[in-house]
């Protein structure tokens, strides 16, 4: 039960971010403070360079990151999943960067960015305001790239209290195994086994909200209720034990 409670909390965090974006257009003032963002960026700087002459390090350099298709800097070796998401249409705009910084694995399951994520919303806004200066048309976001994605997530406390039914999750998971192999094969279709349950829940919400690209997964997750995501999570949690 503990574990279920923990990852539902994670879902709530990302949901809160979505709700925030839903109102993004109403917010006229810049969301972040670039000066503070420069300080926050120190957490990133051991792997990423930005600014004049920036080179790839452990992670790719971040000049021109806004508007770039994911996984497309030449000479940088990305994970397969990151390249795949790029081909699926993942473009680094404000909301995708925000979601990625919140929890990298929710957006790209096998990313090599071994970073827990910036859990403070304001930190993300600040660091993005800082990075925005090194991309074309350095307007502070989100006005530069309007968010056209529909948002309607609202996970109330009541919904979060749902305890998933593993038997139901087992039935629902049979829909996954038409494509995703239980032996963990990663040929053409990503593996979903041995995946931390928290990332799983967050990723399903990211598909459901069409933050994470891929038409099949958006469709499959799109019709899962919060109860059903909880049920799947409960099933996968039991599987993992």
């Amino acid at each position: 039960m503990m574990r279920i409670a923990t990852y539902l909390k994670a879902a709530a965090v990302i949901a809160a971010a979505f709700v925030h974006q839903a109102h993004a257009e109403e917010i006229a003032a810049p969301l972040g403070d670039a000066a503070n963002g420069e300080k926050v960026f120190r957490k990133c700087a051991s792997c990423h360079a930005v600014g004049s002459g920036a080179k790839n390090k452990v992670g790719p350099q971040l000049n021109g990151i806004f508007g770039r298709t994911a996984g497309t800097i030449e000479d940088f070796r990305y994970s397969d999943g990151l390249v795949r998401e790029g081909k699926n249409g993942l473009v680094w705009d404000y909301e995708h960067l925000d979601a990625y910084l919140d929890n990298p694995k929710a957006l790209v399951s096998d990313t090599r960015m071994n970073f827990r994520g910036l859990k403070e919303e304001q930190d993300r806004h600040d660091v993005l305001a800082y990075l925005r200066q090194f991309s074309d048309s350095p307007l502070d976001i989100p006005e530069a790239q309007p968010t056209a994605l529909p948002k309607e997530v609202e996970l109330s406390a009541e919904v979060l209290a749902i305890v998933g039914d593993p038997a139901y999750g087992e039935y629902l998971s049979s829909e996954c195994s038409t494509c995703h192999q239980r032996n963990g094969s990663d040929q053409g279709i990503p593996s979903i086994t041995g995946w931390p349950t928290e990332d799983f829940v967050v990723a399903m919400h990211a598909y459901k909200e069409k933050i994470r690209p891929h038409p099949v997964m958006q469709m499959m997750a799109g019709r899962l209720s919060d109860e059903e995501i909880a049920a799947l999570a409960a099933y996968f949690a039991v599987l993992g034990d």
Binding site: S177, T178, C179, H180, Q181, S185, Q187, G188, I189, G222
Partner: peptide, 30 residues
């Protein structure tokens, strides 16, 4: 709910879609 590939999609996406179908074949037969 449903979706369909679009005309004029770029070659990378079409290739990924094909690779996905190969994964699907392995998945459904398993």
């Amino acid at each position: 709910d449903g979706f369909i590939s679009q005309t004029g999609e770029d070659a990378d996406l079409r290739k990924t879609t094909y690779e996905e179908s190969v994964g699907w074949y392995a998945g459904i037969t398993a």
